[in-house]
Nucleic acid binder design. Structure first.
Lengths: 259, 259
DNA sequence: CCAACCTAACTGTGATCACAGATCACGACA
DNA sequence: TGTCGTGATCTGTGATCACAGTTAGGTTGG
């Protein structure tokens, strides 16, 4: 069910407020150069972003079926933008459309999950190395902030599972963006889109499980490695983090056995 | 212009002939299990595949503008499937849709091309290692066949540029599929989709340029490494192949300087 | 009481229409 | 002669309608 979608479908096209009215009297050419191109966000992109967020956050469970019409109704838009969004996500493998049936969140095979994990180790490990070499102090501070947020959310008396998931995601992607390679970040986003539903669904379900303690350790090692500019240590810490999470998922047995 | 699109737009829906008529009298249940689900290919997927093929083959030049209506007319379909195809390809970065203007093949910045090359070295290098470990004799034979085809097409008196491009693509992807990791292959396809237009447009333009000789050397080294199961040698050969091609592209100066 | 059929609701897919915005070319004014 | 305004044309985007296929539920026959 898509019922509990983010409750802000109505003010859809109200985000582009800074349109500078008419362009009458260009007396001050400097001011016009600073406004940027005011990127118009199409409805389809908006729906795509919405679904992506739900997927990486694990709020759409594997096997859950989606209906174009219901999603459209829930988001207050026509069926058209939803079709576009689903097309894109299906092309990425983040959703799958059964032949004549419905569109649903893919359920990963054990083999598929293991392949995904190996790819994450290769790609995200490379990103960690690169980030260790090129991260600026400002970026380091931002990563540290997310690490603190994760620690607080995960180690509190009443663990904030949603907050931990979000902080973990922010931490990782702050790291990856520090590598300064946009296409690499997109690549990793695609991997997370596929693995997100299981990974974060589980993390949301049992918040403080060994994932918590282990993740915090590795995050700390990662930070010190980044501060020293030690690429291989950063890679090792990140690989340990990914590996620990993957091992935990595997032993919960939420994965399909064969094809 | 989409004018010189593959000249087979008319027999579009004529490929799914093996529909077993009516399902009257299921006397032989065994036969029914073998037919598979006869994957119905939707029109949108067909158009997507068509455009993908054009892109990786370099038959759509960077900066070339596409029109949904013209592509639809050229392919003999409605505008709808083309929209879906363009949406998917745009999500992959293989096409880009300017805000209010048109959809066009992206023109890579020098920096973007270098990033893409680095990612290819990481990902395709990993695939080569994995293939060296797990390739079966049958897969090795297939790779060798493509290598022979490339050699013949590239070293002939009148070089067959289109054939060389196709053989090169087949060779590489036979290698990557030998790694036995489907998601990895998809990942590499996405990279080729982005880099294909420049890479193969150039290869098509000047067929026997140093790219030819160098590529054949590295392909040969790659094959011997695969036969020995030498993972690091296979990676080295592939990296040399990619690096040589990339260096050649850079020195032709077809890339935008900044953003 | 169980199984098989049959109907009604719902699925994604494709086509067509409507619309705001951008592009481009022609023509008028300075 | 150079430059700006202006209208026709074409762009992608979104909505609505139509359709074939599937699914699920209720009913009927055994």
């Amino acid at each position: 069910m898509i019922g509990r979608v983010q409750p802000s479908p109505v003010p859809a096209a109200a985000a582009v407020d800074e349109a500078p009215g008419a362009a009458g009297m260009p007396r001050d050419p400097w001011a016009l150069e600073e406004v940027g191109v005011l990127a118009r966000e199409t409805l389809g992109e908006r729906v795509t972003a919405e679904l992506r967020a739900l997927l990486v956050a694990g709020r759409l469970a594997p096997g859950e079926k989606l209906s174009l019409r219901r999603v459209a109704e829930a988001l207050g838009v026509s069926m058209m933008p939803v079709r576009e969004a689903v097309s894109r996500l299906a092309a990425d493998g983040a959703l799958e459309v059964l032949p004549g049936r419905a569109v649903r969140v893919p359920v990963l095979t054990l083999a598929q999950f293991r392949e995904l994990t190996r790819l994450r180790l290769v790609v995200e490990g490379f990103a960690a190395e690169e980030a260790a070499r090129k991260a600026t102090p400002d970026q380091l501070a931002r990563i540290a902030a997310h690490e603190a947020a994760f620690r607080q959310a995960a180690s509190a008396e009443a663990p904030d599972s949603a907050g931990a998931v979000a902080a973990n995601r922010d931490l990782h992607f702050a790291l990856y963006e520090a590598a300064g390679m946009p296409s690499l970040v997109e690549m990793i986003e695609r991997l997370w889109l596929k693995a997100g539903p299981i990974l974060n669904l589980d993390m949301r379900h049992e918040p403080r499980r060994l994932k918590g303690g282990r993740a915090m350790q590795e995050h700390e090692k990662l930070l010190t490695a980044l501060r020293r500019g030690d690429a291989s240590a950063a890679r090792a810490a990140l690989e340990a983090d990914i590996g620990a999470a993957a091992a935990h998922i595997e032993q919960t047995g939420q994965l399909k056995e064969s094809d």
